[in-house]
Amino acid sequence: MAEILEYKCPCCGGAIIFDSVSQQMKCPFCNTGFDVETLKAYDAELRDEQEQATRMNWSNQAGQPWNSEEAEGVSVYTCESCGGEIIADANTAATHCPFCDNPVIMTGRLSGALRPDYVIPFKLDKAAAKKAFLQHLKGKRLLPKIFKDQNHIDEIKGIYVPFWLFGCNVNANMHYRTTKLRSWSNRDYVYTETSHFLAKRAGTISFDRVPVDGSSKMPDDLMESIEPYNFSEAVDFQTAYLSGYFADKYDVTETESVQRANERIRRSTEEAFSATVQGFHSVSPQGGSIQLVSGQTNYALYPVWILNTTWNNQRYIFAMNGQTGKFVGNLPVDRKAYWRWFVILAVIFAALSYGLIWLFL
C-alpha cells in the first residue's frame, strides 16, 4: 500500500490546509493558524509515525488480479482519517479523499529525485477564481446568452503544476536589412528616395528561470498564457504548501523539455535584439547566430486554478494564475449573433460610404 501524508490540527484533530489568504497552515474546523516553518518538525514526526504504524492484513479471495497494463502507473492509498481507499495515477502528488474530502499528499511521489526545488504558494483562493471567470464572460457580445444564463462551472481545482525552470546565457550576432525613406515634391511630381542598410547587432543576454510545463495533462499554450510568475515570492519546497490542493509531479522530463525551452529562449532573443534596431522605416531579419551557453535547470511547482465547464456538449477549460490572477480561456461563439452583428456593421458601413460619396459630389 502506498504512503500518504495528512497534516492534523494539534488542537482538534481536523485536517489542516494551506490558506492562500493568510499564507499560513489553517484548520478549517477550529480556525487555528500555524506558521509553515513550524511544520517542518511536524512533517518529520508524521513520517516517523507512518513508518511505525501497523495495519491488519486481510485474506481475500474475491476478484481477480489486475493485469500488468491495467496496474501500470496506478497506486492505491489508504486515507488516515476515514480508512477509505484513494486510487491515483502515477503523477498525482496531492489530492483529496473522495469519501471524507480530507487533503492528502502522496509522499512517495515527491521524494528523492522527484522533489521540487521551489514552490510558489497560492495567493488567490477558489472564490477569486470563480469571480475572475464571471468577469471573463462580461462584455463578450458574441457569447451565447444561454451560456451565461444557464452555464455552471463543472469543476474548480487548485493545482500545483510542475515546471522545469531553464536559465542560460545567450551569445547572439544578428543581421537585419533596413530601409529609410525620404520624400519631396515639386509642382509636378512627388519623389521618394529609398536607402538600404545592413544593420548588425551583437551581444550577450541572460535568461533566468524560463518556465516549461512538465505535465502532459496541461496544454503548453494555456500554461504559457497565464505567465508571468513572480519568482521573488517562491520559497524552498515543503509538502505543507500542497495540503488542500491538487498537485502533479512531472511526466515530461527535463530532457524532453529542453527543445521547448530553447525555442522560447531563441524567440525572446530575436525579439530583444530586433527591438534595438530603430530609426528605420522597415526592418527585415536576415539571420545570424544564436548560441546558448552555461545552462542550468531547476524544478518547481507553480499555482494554477483550473476551471472546467460544459456547454452544447463541448468542454471548455480555463486557467488562472494562482499568484497574479491572470485569467485565460476560449469561449464559444453564437453564430446567429455573429451574422447579426456582421449585417448591422455592413449596413452602417454602406450608409456611411453612400453619405461620403454624396458629400463629395
Rank of each mutant, 00 (worst) to 15 (best):
N186E: 06
R187L: 01
R187V: 07
R187F: 00
Y189A: 10
Y189R: 13
V190P: 00
Y191K: 10
E193C: 06
E193N: 11
T194E: 14
T194Y: 13
S195D: 15
S195R: 05
A199K: 07
R201T: 05
R201G: 04
A202T: 07
A202G: 11
T204G: 09
I205E: 08
I205R: 07
I205G: 02
I205T: 08
F207H: 10
F207Y: 15
D208C: 13
R209Y: 14
R209K: 15
P211G: 09
D213R: 08
D213L: 14
G214D: 08
S216N: 12
K217V: 11
K217N: 13
P219R: 03
D220F: 06
D220L: 09
D221P: 03
L222K: 11
L222C: 09
E224H: 12
E224W: 09
S225W: 14
I226T: 09
P228A: 11
E233M: 07
E233V: 00
E233K: 11
V235T: 10
D236I: 11
F237M: 10
F237V: 10
Q238Y: 10
A240Q: 13
A240I: 01
L242S: 04
L242P: 01
G244K: 04
G244N: 04
Y245Q: 03
F246N: 14
D248I: 08
D248Y: 15
Y250L: 04
D251T: 05
D251A: 03
T253V: 08
E254T: 06
T255P: 00
E256V: 07
S257N: 08
S257W: 02
S257I: 00
V258H: 08
V258W: 13
R260E: 10
A261S: 06
A261C: 06
A261P: 04
A261R: 03
E263K: 05
R264G: 01
R264T: 09
I265Y: 01
I265Q: 00
I265K: 01
R266C: 02
R266Q: 07
R267L: 10
R267E: 07
T269S: 03
T269M: 07
E270L: 09
E270C: 01
F273K: 02
S274G: 01
A275P: 15
T276W: 02
T276C: 00
T276A: 02
V277Q: 01
Q278C: 00
G279Y: 02
F280D: 03
F280A: 03
S282Y: 05
S284I: 12
Q286S: 12
Q286H: 13
G287Q: 03
G288I: 00
S289H: 06
S289P: 00
S289L: 05
I290V: 04
Q291W: 12
L292I: 15
S294A: 15
G295V: 06
Q296L: 06
Q296G: 10
T297F: 04
T297E: 09
N298E: 11
Y299I: 05
Y299S: 10
A300E: 06
A300W: 00
L301H: 06
Y302R: 08
P303L: 13
P303N: 12
I306D: 09
I306F: 15
I306G: 10
I306K: 14
L307H: 04
N308S: 13
T309W: 11
T309F: 13
T310V: 15
T310M: 12
W311V: 13
N312Q: 14
F318L: 07
F318M: 05
M320H: 03
M320Y: 01
